[in-house]
Simulated assay, not measured.
Amino acid sequence: MTTATAIPGYVVGTWDIDAAHSDVSFSVRHMMVSKVRGRFTGVTGELVTAERLQDSSVTATVDATSITTGQEQRDGHIRSADFFDVEKYPEWTFRSTGLVAKGGDDYVLAGDLTIKGVTRPVEFALDVNGFGPDAYGGTRAGFTATTTIKRSEFGVDIEMPMDGGGVVVGDKVSVELEIEAVLRAS
């Protein structure tokens, strides 16, 4: 097991996600020929880095209403009951259940993801990007995490078949996180 001290600059503490410097994005197959990319501009959360790396934890909330794909009509449709039903389910949550070092710089962050009231276990491939001072006298940490989910398993199960076969929106969704967090002052 990799110890926390094996990560250069590792700092034990409680961190707040800096939404202005973090990115929660996704891509999904569209019309069987390309991918649509989007992001959520509203994310909050807390990371706790522990003395024993495997005791570290993450809780995060995504504002589902903050979705943007660069096309307002599509964003409105995705917010509707056909997809995310943001009037009924305005927030999604993630709560970690474990962190495992896979060797070298490779980690797996396991947890429970809730979308549209459906909670399923997910695993993120996690990269620890680093720890260090910021320009304001504080300390920052950065992380990259990726996973793939099936939207249908979270109740986003709209079927939009195409005349020639296939579907308008694929079921497999790639999720990419770039998280920057700020250490709370003692």
Rank of each mutant, 00 (worst) to 15 (best):
His77Pro: 12
Val128Ile: 13
Ser56Asp: 08
Gly111His: 04
Arg151Leu: 14
Lys35Ile: 13
Val118Asp: 04
Thr139Cys: 10
Tyr89Phe: 10
Glu72Pro: 05
Asp171Val: 09
Leu99Ser: 02
Tyr89His: 07
Asp82Arg: 15
Asp106Met: 04
Pro90Cys: 04
Gly9Phe: 07
Ser25Ala: 15
Ser25Lys: 15
Asp82Gly: 11
Val167Gly: 08
Val62Leu: 13
Arg79Phe: 01
Met32Asp: 08
Trp92Ala: 14
Thr69Val: 07
Gly166Trp: 07
Thr148Asn: 12
Asp63Met: 08
Val11Glu: 05
Ala50Lys: 12
Pro90Val: 00
Val33Tyr: 12
Met31Thr: 08
Asp106Ser: 05
Phe83Arg: 05
Ala20Ser: 14
Ser27Pro: 02
Ser27Ala: 13
Pro121Met: 03
Ser25His: 13
Glu180Gln: 13
Gln54Arg: 14
Pro8Trp: 02
Asp157Ser: 12
Tyr136Glu: 12
Ala141Thr: 10
Thr65Met: 04
Asp163Val: 01
Ser56Tyr: 10
Glu176Val: 13
Trp92Lys: 09
Ala64Tyr: 01
Gly138Asn: 13
Ile115Asn: 01
Thr49Ser: 14
Ser56Pro: 06
Asp55Lys: 07
Thr114Trp: 09
Gly104Ser: 05
Ile78Ala: 08
Ala60Glu: 05
Gly142Thr: 15
Val86Leu: 07
Met160Cys: 06
Thr148Cys: 07
Leu53His: 05
Val168Asn: 09
Val58Tyr: 00
Thr14Trp: 03
Thr61Phe: 10
Thr69Asp: 09
Gly155Asn: 02
Phe124Lys: 12
Ser22Asn: 09
Val33Ala: 11
Asp85Tyr: 02
Val36Lys: 03
Gly42Lys: 14
Thr68Arg: 06
Thr147Tyr: 06
Arg120Ile: 09
Asp82Lys: 14
Pro161Gln: 13
Tyr107Pro: 02
Val100Tyr: 05
Asp82Asn: 12
Val100Asn: 08
Gly45Asn: 11
Ala50Leu: 11
Leu99Asn: 02
Thr44Ala: 15
Lys102Gln: 05
Gly104Tyr: 03
Arg29His: 09
Phe124His: 07
Phe26Lys: 13
Arg95Ile: 00
Asp134Gly: 13
Gly45Ser: 13
Glu87Ser: 05
Arg52Ala: 15
Glu123Met: 03
Gln71His: 10
Pro90Thr: 00
